[in-house]
Design a protein around this nucleic acid. Structure first.
Length: 114
DNA sequence: CTCGTGACCCCAA
DNA sequence: ATTGGGGCCACGA
């Protein structure tokens, strides 16, 4: 058993509570578990993400998750998550890590208990 | 025990 | 829009 199983478990529980088509920022998840460690949330998703819908936990900037933009995009398209595509984005300039899109937090942000 | 490393956040120039 | 600085916390070396 890990010493900080409480924190880890809580984070994973919050992630699982996010409904399809919606997202929560790392910072919001941290706050939900009574912490400010957005970074630690990222670490946990990186390590235990395979057990939860990690693509529903995104950076507050709305930018795609570093290192997983292409993978997450597939989930968003499948779930109908509100996205914003850059007007100038096209297949030639779009690099996997610099794809011209971001999450529309205004519409996609999920607030627990509402 | 200390240090470095992140799928980060927020505020100020 | 871009930089820079401080804060937060789990985890492995």
């Amino acid at each position: 058993m890990m010493a900080d199983e409480k924190f880890t478990t809580a984070v994973l529980a919050v992630a699982e509570s996010i409904p399809p088509g919606r997202v929560m920022t790392y910072g919001d998840v941290a706050q939900a578990v009574g912490s400010r460690a957005a970074r630690a949330v990222g670490q946990i998703m990186a390590r235990y993400g395979d057990e939860v819908p990690w693509w529903r936990v995104v950076p507050a900037s709305g930018q795609p998750i570093s290192g997983h933009s292409a993978e997450s995009l597939a989930y968003y398209r499948d779930e109908g998550t509100p996205l914003i595509f850059a007007a100038q984005a096209n297949q030639f300039t779009a690099h996997p890590e610099t794809a011209g899109w971001r999450i529309d937090l205004k519409k996609a942000l999920w607030v627990p208990g509402r």
